[in-house]
């Protein structure tokens, strides 16, 4: 297994000893992970392996039991409320199902983060609406889509709007939760392409979780595999399909026989 700090330089996101249990079930068990500036890291793993919990811990939506999460060398878990809000302004997130606000039109969904910022950095509604139109264009949607309600959009369009919302404030860090789940392969490739474009254009650091191998190799520079709450492998995303790790090999090739299957049968 490659170590978490094989690259030179200060990581943008540095996770050490992250653990989380729900009752007797240990979901994350001492995770060490570095995400370097300007790179995209993909965490793969089966359902229930702890991927979403890892992401939610980093986002501050779940409080871990132990460990540290540093962004630019600052422990975000030790931050006060105001500092945490400031940190979140530097982050964009694309949720698995889009998580668009039903009660707001598309443009307001996209501009939500710009309107919700602290006083002084908050945009006027007119400017935010204009910016929403620009970002919708960037993700391949017509600005007139901004006047629709989220319920009027197809799944692929909702994902694009979710991506537009994530990048609207030009965040330094982008998180993607299963970005291609529920999409057909073509739309999945389109969304992945948009993600890669956006990350490159903004120069952001990205962390994605997925169990879609095609998506993982398209999005990621680096990859890691989470299995039973532990990171069992980390390396270049390009080497995912021939990692030499039996767990990763079985998972990436979708084989029924192997160490993961044996665990499931136990």
């Amino acid at each position: 297994m490659n170590g978490p700090t094989t690259r030179i330089g200060v990581p943008k996101i540095r996770i050490r000893g992250l653990s989380k249990s729900f009752g007797p079930k240990r979901v994350l068990d001492g995770i060490d992970l570095d995400v370097h500036p300007g790179t995209s890291t993909v965490v793969i793993g089966g359902s229930g392996s702890g991927k979403s919990v890892l992401l939610r811990c980093i986002l501050g939506l779940i409080e871990p039991d132990a460990g540290t999460i540093e962004i630019d060398g600052v422990d975000v878990l030790a931050q006060g409320r105001r500092d945490q809000e400031a940190t979140r302004e530097r982050i964009g997130m694309l949720f698995q199902n889009g998580a668009l606000f039903d009660s707001l039109p598309v443009w307001e969904n996209v501009a939500f983060g710009l309107l919700a910022r602290r006083k002084g950095r908050r945009m006027s509604r007119t400017a935010a609406r204009q910016r929403a139109g620009q970002v919708l264009t960037q993700v391949g949607l017509d600005p007139s889509v901004g006047n629709l309600q989220p319920s009027e959009l197809s799944g692929g369009m909702q994902k694009r709007v979710g991506l537009a919302r994530a990048i609207a404030a030009q965040p330094e860090i982008l998180f993607f939760d299963e970005p291609t789940t529920g999409l057909d392969p073509i739309m999945g490739a389109v969304i992945d392409g948009l993600i890669v474009d956006c990350v490159k254009r903004l120069g952001s650091t990205a962390l994605a979780i997925t169990h879609d191998m095609a998506s993982a190799t398209r999005i990621g520079d680096r990859a890691a595999m989470l299995y039973q709450g532990r990171l069992v492998w980390q390396g270049e995303a390009a080497s995912l399909l021939h990692s030499g790790n039996p767990l990763v090999d079985q998972f990436t090739h979708g084989r029924r026989e192997g160490p993961i299957g044996m665990e499931l049968r136990r």
Partner: peptide
């Protein structure tokens, strides 16, 4: 029902990630 639906569809978490 409204807030519950927002909770189970991650909209409440999305608010948190948008500084709200």
């Amino acid at each position: 029902a409204e807030i519950g639906t927002m909770r189970v569809t991650d909209q409440v978490d999305a608010l948190g990630t948008l500084s709200t």
